[in-house]
Design a protein around this nucleic acid. Structure first.
Length: 884
DNA sequence: AAACTCACG
DNA sequence: ACGTACGTGAGTTTG
């Protein structure tokens, strides 16, 4: 019976009621913007999802109780009397729960004069048990009487996650009764919640004993004469009518006149057109976030057919101007990944080919390298780097849908083309995860599936281009895309391909030295602690320090004691073990992340490290660097800084050259805010932190600014850029909040332009829902008008910081593009290697350094025309370490 | 997979 | 009253 269907029947009221109490302690946190409580809706939703996920039913119904009175009240007018009134906080949620059920693609039903139980019982028994297994879910046990070989009853135990399965076997084990005897038990013992009286003095235990002996309520009364005289017998006689009535009332009506047919209950999955607005109305942001992937999964089953040509040999007529082009790799590291296939084409014709066969065809190469025949693609950098391994220099790319989607909404980008396509209403494609799997199961599908998937990608790209291009123009981001991100992508590709040479022997030597140091520290720590433990485990360390040694725990984390640096710093004078631990942490970090980490990623053939810059990730427009991250190589502490000695030029006689922007973010702030004092400081070439110190602390001359005062002013300047708060500043400087607040107030008094910028940008963010950089890079801030203080505050700080950090990122990006052009134009050998947010690293022949210095400085300082100067400082040496 | 810690701008 | 600096990536332990 391979395809037996499964009917899931949910007792809506009782489950919702359980859901309500499951999150009762969070009642006040679950309120939407109109003040509606949503805890039961939320928990009910989760519960339904869990059950459906677990049971995978083919048909589903949620049954609700209809009105107040049912046929049971005709028998017994006090039925359900004495029940405490349902709380209004719960009642107000019921209509929305019904709506939610519908939006989840599930039918619900109620019937005048009957309870949900009766609907469920009737349906459970009506369906053919040859065709259906039935699962009933309820919050109370009344329904367990339905259990049989084809009907399983699941009852919520506690909360919403745990269910207890009532099968006939389980009921036998638990009570020693059959499911039908549950009704007899209710007749004898009654049920307080339904106000069923039963027999006085008889509870569950006694009822079970009696039923084991006499089988049923009727059996008990037939054998009354056999019983010895007792109080129990008296009660049985006295309450006979009550008992039979209770049994009658507890019996689920299996012949309810339900009008629905089981075929109408087929579960079809979520209705996102209804669900999304409902989530929004309920403020269910976590559900909203999940919608994308859910939606794709649920729609992927009914794709319309697609026509494409599977080709094995390149022919002239296959390559036209303006085509889409897509290169598939399953491994995310495109420096090494195998080529799974290629696809190209336009609305008229799509060509696909699996493997890397096509890349060896001269006609194919000729097309890709032809600047005049334009192509549009998805992730041009990844594509260009991979093609470079086949000695193909990709040219003529005029559009990149990934980059465009990222610029339009920094949240909407994805490595997966299907997700982007979905966001723009193209649904004729499945996700890579669906086709290739994930984790250990990831791999190539059979060729036909692969080819069709690739063809669909071309279709999606052809669809996306006009839409995305138009939106870029609408959002004033045409130039940002075509003049900044797209050209930058090609520059980054060159940098990634170039890689940076690493002296592995230097690293190996450091590895040996560090391991000796680490062993020594370990020994001393074990001795001081009086036992051996795993120094890398904050948990074990916490036990040693705060329990065994009795040091005061300064701070706690979610899971235990914090052992972070700032905590350990405060314990320094309490025990010599602290300094050892701090030193251990420092060295262990260098050893594992940098020495050993970098050794692992040196390319075996060229001895270089090739990072990947992620161009479509950050919310501010910065790049990020992965596998390895070359943007966080140590510099602040000497011991770690030495790592930079391993980064060397690729040829003897060459140098490493570095140039970084001085105070770029504060300069950007001065420009955006047009604060006259901040601008003036830069125009006069002052040390900005000293200048801030003089204004904020009322100091006459620069000489009077002590290092400590300058340090405080520096922290204030940082705070300003991050969207200052008194708490943050107080933490950073180790001062009280009150003192920090005074600093901030004075700062705003002395720099009114900055204050005005902050107020204006937050206002603007609240009005428009997003902020922009000077080059129209956009970041949406959905929480900016949230009623949640934390979310709102965070969005406000972000509104302040993003235009600053983002504009600074824009400037360096523009400089990189210009520098790439200039180096080529001046026929220089110098190569751009790395970007570290406000710094560029090159390698160049020693003889070129002077020229390089001139060109780099000129471009970096001149790339943006501000009302104050930009400044770049250069340095060079035999290694990255020496470029200081 | 999440939590913690720590490296960078 | 709320509890926080902005933006990242990676190694290790642990549930």
């Amino acid at each position: 019976m391979a395809d037996k269907k499964k009917l899931l029947l949910v007792d809506g009221n009782s489950v919702a009621f359980r859901a309500f109490y499951a999150l009762y302690q969070s009642l006040n946190r679950f309120k939407n913007s109109s003040g509606l409580h949503t805890n039961a809706i939320y928990a009910f939703h989760n519960m339904l999802e869990n059950i459906i996920e677990k049971e995978k039913p083919s048909h589903v119904l949620v049954a609700f109780d209809a009105g107040k009175t049912t046929f049971r009240h005709e028998t017994f007018s006090e039925y359900k009397d004495g029940r405490s009134k349902t709380p209004s906080e719960f009642r107000e949620q019921l209509p929305y729960i019904r709506e939610m059920v519908t939006a989840l693609g599930i039918k619900h039903y109620e019937l005048d004069n009957y309870e949900a139980d009766d609907i469920i019982g009737t349906l459970a028994n009506k369906v053919s048990h040859d065709d259906f297994d039935v699962v009933v879910v309820s919050g109370d046990k009344d329904l367990t009487q339905l259990a049989d070989d084809h009907i399983r009853v699941e009852v919520t135990v506690k909360g919403v996650s745990e269910l207890e399965s009532y099968t006939p076997e389980h009921i036998k084990e638990k009570y020693g009764l059959t499911p039908r005897q549950i009704i007899d038990m209710k007749g004898l013992a009654g049920d307080a919640s339904d106000n069923l009286p039963g027999v006085s003095g008889v509870g569950e235990k006694t009822a079970i004993t009696l039923l084991k002996e006499y089988g049923s309520l009727e059996g008990v009364y037939e054998h009354l004469d056999d019983m010895k005289k007792s109080k129990r017998k008296e009660n049985l006689i006295k309450d006979r009518d009550q008992a039979f009535m209770s049994k009658e009332l507890a019996t689920i009506n299996l012949n309810t006149p339900v009008e629905i047919k089981v075929d109408d209950l087929a579960y079809e999955g979520k209705d996102f057109d209804k669900l999304i607005p409902l989530y929004k109305e309920m403020d269910f942001n976590s559900f909203l976030a999940k919608v994308d992937s859910d939606e794709i999964k649920s729609n992927a089953e009914n794709l319309t057919e697609i026509v494409f040509e599977h080709v094995l040999e390149a022919k002239e007529e296959m390559f036209k101007d303006g085509m889409e082009f897509y290169l598939e790799m399953l491994d995310e590291n495109y420096h090494l990944a195998e080529i799974a296939g290629v696809a190209w084409g336009n609305q008229e014709h799509i060509y696909v080919c699996s493997g890397d066969e096509m890349l060896h065809q001269p006609l194919f190469k000729k097309w890709l390298e032809n600047n005049q025949l334009t192509k549009k693609t998805y992730d041009v950098k990844r594509t260009a780097v991979a093609l470079n391994r086949y000695d193909i220099e990709l040219a003529g790319v005029t559009f990149d849908a990934l980059l465009a989607a990222y610029l339009l909404d920094t949240n909407d980008k994805s490595e997966d083309l299907a997700e982007v396509a979905y966001n723009y209403d193209f649904r004729e494609i499945e996700t890579d995860e669906k086709i290739y799997g994930k984790g250990v199961k990831r791999g190539l599908p059979e060729e036909a599936v692969l080819l069709e998937h690739l063809a669909r990608k071309i279709k999606a790209l052809a669809y996306l281009y006009p839409t995305l291009d138009e939106q870029l123009s609408d959002q004033a981001q045409h130039d940002l895309f075509y003049e900044m991100e797209l050209p930058l992508s090609q520059v980054l590709a060159k940098m990634e391909i170039a890689g940076i040479k690493v002296d592995a022997s230097r690293l190996t030597k450091m590895q040996q030295e560090f391991s000796v140091i680490l062993k020594g520290i370990e020994q001393r720590v074990y001795e001081l602690a009086g036992e051996e433990f795993n120094l890398n485990s904050p948990k074990q360390l916490g036990v040693i320090l705060f329990e065994k040694m009795g040091l005061p725990p300064i701070k706690k984390t979610k899971t235990g004691y914090s052992t972070a640096v700032d905590v350990l710093e405060q314990l320094k004078d309490k025990s010599p073990i602290i300094d050892e631990i701090l030193h251990y942490r420092q060295v262990a970090k260098i050893q594992s992340t940098y020495v050993e980490g970098l050794l692992k990623v040196i390319h075996p053939e060229d001895g270089k490290i090739h990072t990947r810059y992620v161009q479509t990730l950050t919310q501010t427009g910065r790049l990020s660097s992965v596998d390895p991250n070359l943007q966080n190589i140590p510099i602040r502490l000497e011991e770690g800084r030495k790592i930079r000695q391993a980064f060397v030029p690729r040829k003897p006689g060459w140098k490493i050259f570095a140039s970084d922007y001085s105070q770029i973010e504060l300069r950007v702030l001065a420009e955006i805010s047009q604060d006259e004092h901040l601008r003036q400081a830069f125009l006069e070439g002052q040390d900005i932190h000293t200048s801030t110190a003089m204004r904020v602390f009322n100091i006459e001359t620069a000489e009077e600014v002590t290092p400590n005062i300058r340090r405080q002013a520096k922290a204030v300047n940082f705070g300003v850029v991050y969207g200052i708060s008194d708490y943050g500043l107080s933490q950073n400087l180790g001062i009280t909040r009150k003192e920090a607040k005074e600093f901030i107030d004075t700062y705003f008094e002395k720099y009114p332009g900055v204050k005005k910028y902050m107020q204006d940008i937050v206002r603007e963010a609240k009005d428009k829902g997003f902020v922009e950089t000077l080059w129209h890079r956009r970041r949406y801030l959905p929480d900016i008008n949230s009623r949640n203080f934390n979310l709102r505050s965070f969005a406000e700080r972000t509104a302040i910081n993003t235009p600053i950090q983002g504009s600074a990122a824009d400037i360096l990006k523009l400089a990189m593009i210009e520098l790439d052009k200039r180096l080529a134009k001046e026929n220089m050998e110098a190569t751009m290697l790395l970007q570290v947010h406000d710094e560029l690293v090159f390698e160049a022949p020693a003889e070129e350094i002077e020229q390089l210095d001139k060109v780099v400085t000129e471009v970096m300082e001149g790339i943006a025309t501000f009302s104050l100067p930009l400044k770049a400082d250069s340095s060079w040496g035999d290694t990255w370490y020496d470029a200081k």
